[in-house]
Design a binder for these strands. Sequence first.
DNA 1: TATAATACAGACTGTAATTATCTATAATTA
DNA 2: TAATTATAGATAATTACAGTCTGTATTATA
Lengths: 139, 139
Amino acid sequence: MKYTKATNYALHIMAFFVKQDGRDNLSLQPIANHMNISPTYLSKILTQLVKADLIQSAPGMNGGYSLRKHKNEVSFFDVIQAIEGSGALFTCEMNDQSDCSLERVMREAENHMITYLKEKKLIEVVAKNSMSSTCKEKV
Amino acid sequence: MKYTKATNYALHIMAFFVKQDGRDNLSLQPIANHMNISPTYLSKILTQLVKADLIQSAPGMNGGYSLRKHKNEVSFFDVIQAIEGSGALFTCEMNDQSDCSLERVMREAENHMITYLKEKKLIEVVAKNSMSSTCKEKV
DNA sequence: TATAATACAGACTGTAATTATCTATAATTA
DNA sequence: TAATTATAGATAATTACAGTCTGTATTATA
């Protein structure tokens, strides 16, 4: 069990948008170049973020993508849920059961993680860094 | 991202062992019958639990599997780690980075979940139920 | 010692999810 | 109308997961 690459990309992309807030629209190509992934694939991820209302898109000249929520309000959880969906990590697979005590514990555990991810905003992590070094800064 | 079925099975199996503690060895066939999965596949899962020192195995007549740790000490985390391994859920995939602030947050989030899963013992959940109803009891 | 009962290991297969690409289409601006 | 942009759909490649098959090793007991 691991987070998908798409979630990985999405977090980096959103960190970028939070950083860039207010400036011009960003279009697909430059983002793809910067992140070193194919434009069409990136486009799929961006579309998911649009559908989750985290960013907005505009076609045509001078179009592109821009942040929709206030930059202070985008949480890690928002981004993760946009990509991974909202299903629980653990669902009891046993045939005959409707109410599983193991499952209840597993959900509670997941909720501990989720609570933290909801509280934690991207801006907290992004503020100090330049875009390209989202992943470079020393502790 | 979801927990694997193997983890699902493993939790149910270990709940069974905790419940059964002290009684005779359990051999593959009866467990497989009870859980409705194929013996060879079950065997793989049990072997992983053996390697993680949660249960022990004995070949030959009157052989089988039995609990190794004290029944009060088996945590959800023990079982999950035995199957899923110990890698982090999130690993920064960007090329040029060694130290990623996003990753740090994601690990911290995961740790919140792990801490809970380490504290929570199987016996807490199993005590009230009969084996076959690990998943049946009403709240 | 022979046999039956058991666990273990490796190769293999099928299926589903993820990752990614390609092509075509729609919308907008100038 | 032409250029620039996003979106959608089909499809392919890769990987992880779930499961099976076959054979081997170990132990108890008759």
